[in-house]
């Protein structure tokens, strides 16, 4: 079953709106894409369109929080984090305002709109700001839980929400705790750390690896910051070979966060899957993922390479 995480997000906002009068939603003229249009319809008095003004919307969110509201601030991820970064840093994070930033149309999902519209840097931009929680739920079920968890969390947070229908890989009764990763599949030969839609691809890769005789442990790292160091350390100590998979650049993203941590605490090979420091292309969603290697086949390949490096064997040849 595939569901677009943004649908779950839009519905979760409406639930929260019913439960708490302090929830307000701000959008930068993309309410239909972000699906905050559902909240707008249900609570028109608590929905604010700031127009195409990402710097303004970010700092306006800080003002709402200052006066006691819980604002969810929405726009396309690259424009929001790009144009609104300094406002996120100063007016929200340094000022410790309780604002929820939600980035949409993430990764490859803008498809043929091409390189200008492919957010591949937003995790990196968010991750460097002190005190900012960074999330990317794996599927629609987890997106609902994450949205509710953010409303209950007192502090600034950034969440990426997927646009495309994504396989549902978590269950309603799975625990969801901010900062606590979930093991979706236990294994002892290699660790695959994934977030967002890449979690489903990691599980596909793990099935393929099993057929090849390697038992992969798949970790759903829905909270990218703060890292669940305990679960990463335990898995890396066990497998001593790690691959990371994200719909984002490998520079400064989730894989970077994992590599930084493991380099200091448990230095093992870490192979990062994501865009490799290049801009995208105008193509279908699937073709762009193929172009960047955001595929289960690539995860299999990199997991095997990590194992080869660990074992001192030559990796399979590649360009």
């Amino acid at each position: 079953m595939k569901i677009a995480p943004r649908e779950a997000y839009g519905r979760a906002l409406v639930e929260l709106g019913r439960e708490n009068d302090d929830i307000v939603v701000l959008d930068a003229d993309v309410a239909k894409a972000s699906m905050t249009s559902l909240f707008k319809e249900a609570f028109p008095d608590r929905f604010f369109d700031l127009g195409i003004a990402e710097s303004d919307i970010m700092a306006t969110g800080a003002g709402f929080a200052l006066a006691g509201k819980i604002p969810f601030v929405n726009a396309y991820a690259n424009f929001l984090l790009g144009n609104g970064w300094e406002q996120l840093r100063l007016s929200i994070c340094y000022s410790r305002q309780n604002v929820k930033i939600v980035g949409h149309n993430i990764g490859a999902s803008s498809g043929k709109d091409g390189p200008t519209h492919l957010p591949l840097e937003d995790i990196a931009l968010a991750r460097v700001i002190p005190g900012l929680l960074v999330l990317e739920p794996a599927d629609a079920i987890e997106t609902r839980k994450a949205t509710r968890a953010l409303a209950a969390y007192a502090g600034p947070a950034y969440m990426r929400v997927g646009r495309m229908p994504t396989p549902v890989v978590t269950r309603e009764d799975d625990p969801f705790v901010l900062g606590r990763a979930n093991i979706c599949r236990p294994g002892q030969d290699v660790t695959i750390v994934a977030c967002g839609c890449m979690t489903a691809k990691a599980l596909e890769a793990a099935a393929e690896l099993a057929a090849r005789g390697l038992e992969a442990e798949v970790i759903n790292l829905h909270t990218i910051k703060p890292l669940d160091e305990e679960i990463l350390l335990a898995s890396a100590r066990k497998t001593r070979a790690v691959a990371t998979a994200e719909e984002h650049s490998v520079c400064g993203g989730m894989g970077g966060a994992v590599a930084e941590f493991l380099a200091a605490r448990c230095p093992v090979p870490v192979r990062a899957i994501g865009s490799q420091d290049i801009f995208g292309i105008c193509a279908s969603y699937e073709d762009i993922q193929e172009f960047f290697g955001m595929t289960s086949a690539k995860i299999v390949e990199e997991a095997e390479t990590a194992c080869a490096m660990r074992d001192g064997r030559p990796a399979a040849p590649r360009c």
């Binding site: 700092a59 306006t60 003002g63 709402f64 006066a67 406002q87 007016s91």
Partner: peptide, 21 residues
């Protein structure tokens, strides 16, 4: 009430506070 020093942000913050009020 809010940090500043990076110029240009205060009026947006004021608008948010006013809308909330």
């Amino acid at each position: 009430d809010i940090a500043s020093g990076s110029l240009g942000q205060g009026l947006s913050v004021a608008n948010g506070a006013a809308l909330a009020a």
